[in-house]
Design a protein around this nucleic acid. Structure first.
Lengths: 153, 153
DNA sequence: ATTCTAGTTCTGTAAATTTTGAACCAAAAG
DNA sequence: CTTTTGGTTCAAAATTTACAGAACTAGAAT
């Protein structure tokens, strides 16, 4: 696949952003590629060739991204290839998952306060406040998402 | 410093959560320790001894956490030691920073759409939607923080 | 002036992660 | 049945990261 220099640069930038979000470099670039590619569905080999990576790296990354719910594939009868694509329409789910991990942290903070000495009331209060706000977020973010959906009808 | 088993376990759990947020194991444990420690300000050596880590690891991690604005230290005249503590009261700033990096991603997505072929209007729209929602978040999250502050007066 | 203290920096290495290449496998095609 | 295609799996190589240990430094204490 021949990509403009701008697109190649975008792939790398997106790749790095994805890396910072905790996924491996190759997987990050695959995400980037699928964002900029004219065709939103690419085959295993198109991905592998375009990014100049090995089959195993491609296979691993694609499977990882599928586990993370970032990717799926479609097929066409009479064609054995899989056509991989971003599950862009499911970004709401990913955000929901993020929100849940926020709550995990809030719960841990509440355990911390329960274990802490009572001799540091201000400090304990700061921790409680943070936990409290995170829980507030957990409740309010889905509402925000809903309001955004409505605002654009 | 002698810590209960519960506190030790909490330190490890917090450590892992911090790791998942992209910081190194030792730094994550330091954060955990400062959360659970009876005294919220600990010296370099207290941290090093309690966590059984080397001076260099301690120094590096403390400097990293200071760069990330997670930590600072106070001093007392007549005492050469630094007393390191979490910048807990500044968690609002950290959240603001998170929001900014969300915006970075939104901007990149808008660049992606600008570079994309116009032959995939639905796909382009999905990307625009995501960018749009992220920008909406950027505007609304600070308001949420504000409303939370008010709700607890 | 010498020694101590509190912490930093540098070098090496152990460990973890990522990636490759080659062998392999199952289903489809010939 | 044999070959080809599309992809997976495994072992090893390469890269990256985290950490330890020792040497070092600046300022304070003696």
């Amino acid at each position: 696949m021949n990509l403009s220099e701008q697109k190649k640069a975008l792939i790398e930038r997106i790749g790095i952003m994805q890396e910072k979000a905790g996924i491996q470099p190759v997987a990050g670039r695959i995400v980037g590629l699928l964002y900029v590619s004219d065709r939103p569905e690419l085959t295993f080999d198109e991905i592998r060739e375009t990014l100049c990576i090995s089959k195993s790296a491609t296979s691993n990354a694609l499977n990882l991204l599928q586990q993370l719910n970032r990717l799926d594939y479609i097929t066409f009868s009479g064609d054995r290839k899989r056509y991989f694509r971003l599950k862009l329409s499911r970004w709401r789910d990913l955000i929901t998952k993020e929100i849940d991990s926020i709550t995990d942290f809030a719960n841990t903070l509440q355990e911390v306060v329960a274990e802490r000495t009572k001799d540091t009331p201000e400090y304990n209060q700061s921790i409680s406040d943070l936990a409290d706000f995170l829980k507030y977020l957990h409740v309010e973010l889905p509402k925000l998402l809903q309001r955004w959906e409505e605002s654009r009808k």
